[in-house]
């Protein structure tokens, strides 16, 4: 569905943040990207979402280079963002925030994330962090984009709220067929994802198998997935 090809990105050439990354993300899956703060996982998300332009390589959506398609159009048509800091418009209510880019009924999206109806007309700043994140997820769901990019969606939440948010994201992937890519530094949360990529000093590696998913070496497989939905735990090259 959405994949990177030989993706390299840097702000300063001498310090590459991502180098030759090639990963494929499919619809119906929840992906977790693990890594320490500042390692470049959010940068990958931004590249996938068309917020950054790769220095080298491509991001392809359904086989089309998003740079050719237009980054603005890509954000408009394909990807929805969920941010760690929620990024809600402060002077709007819950319902108004969700309706901002809604293609589906905002009410349905709000119901999906389990926000009580009496909160819908409240200013978002009056909500708790967990509630605000649900609003942000509802906004992304209502925009009905096939790819959801969630950057530390549970970073500011308590355990219960984090679990609730994760459940919504899982549901969105598994029941609504979206491709949900979640950046997190929590191994526990990542463990609930269908597939996990860990970013280490040597680059992105699949969880458990510690195999590099990018390399200059032709012999190394381009991407390696762990598909937890498949009970046999096959490794796909």
């Amino acid at each position: 569905m959405i994949k990177t090809e030989d993706l390299t990105f840097y702000y300063h050439e001498y310090r590459k943040i991502l180098e030759h990354v090639s990963i494929t993300f499919e619809k119906g899956n929840l992906y977790a990207i693990l890594g320490a703060s500042g390692c470049g996982k959010s940068t990958l998300l931004s590249l996938l979402g068309g917020l950054l332009t790769p220095k080298v390589g491509k991001v392809l959506y359904e086989g089309t280079d998003i740079a050719e398609y237009g980054l603005e159009r890509h954000r408009q048509d394909h990807v929805g963002f969920i941010f760690q800091g929620y990024n809600l418009i402060e002077y709007m209510t819950v319902a108004e925030n969700v309706a901002l880019t809604a293609k589906q009924s905002p009410e349905t999206a709000l119901q999906k994330v389990g926000l009580e109806k009496d909160l819908w007309k409240q200013n978002v700043l009056k909500l708790s962090g967990g509630q605000q994140q649900r609003v942000a997820i509802a906004r992304a769901l209502a925009s009905d984009k096939p790819v959801l990019l969630a950057d530390e969606p549970t970073g500011n939440l308590d355990e219960d709220s984090a679990q609730a948010v994760l459940d919504i994201l899982k549901k969105s992937a598994h029941e609504e067929g979206r491709c949900v890519i979640m950046v997190t530094h929590s191994s526990a949360l990542a463990a609930e994802a269908d597939e996990i990529y860990r970013y280490t000093d040597s680059g992105f590696q699949t969880e458990d198998y510690d195999l590099a998913i990018f390399s200059d070496t032709e012999n190394v497989p381009e991407t390696i997935h762990i598909n937890r939905n498949k009970k046999d735990g096959d490794i796909h090259a």
């Binding site: 979402g49 917020l51 603005e72 954000r75 408009q76 963002f81 809600l88 901002l100 880019t101 906004r139």
Partner: peptide, 14 residues
């Protein structure tokens, strides 16, 4: 700026 950035990230055109 923050609002502008959010709107742009959400796909609202310039």
């Amino acid at each position: 700026n923050r609002e502008t950035g959010i709107l742009m990230a959400l796909g609202v055109t310039g």
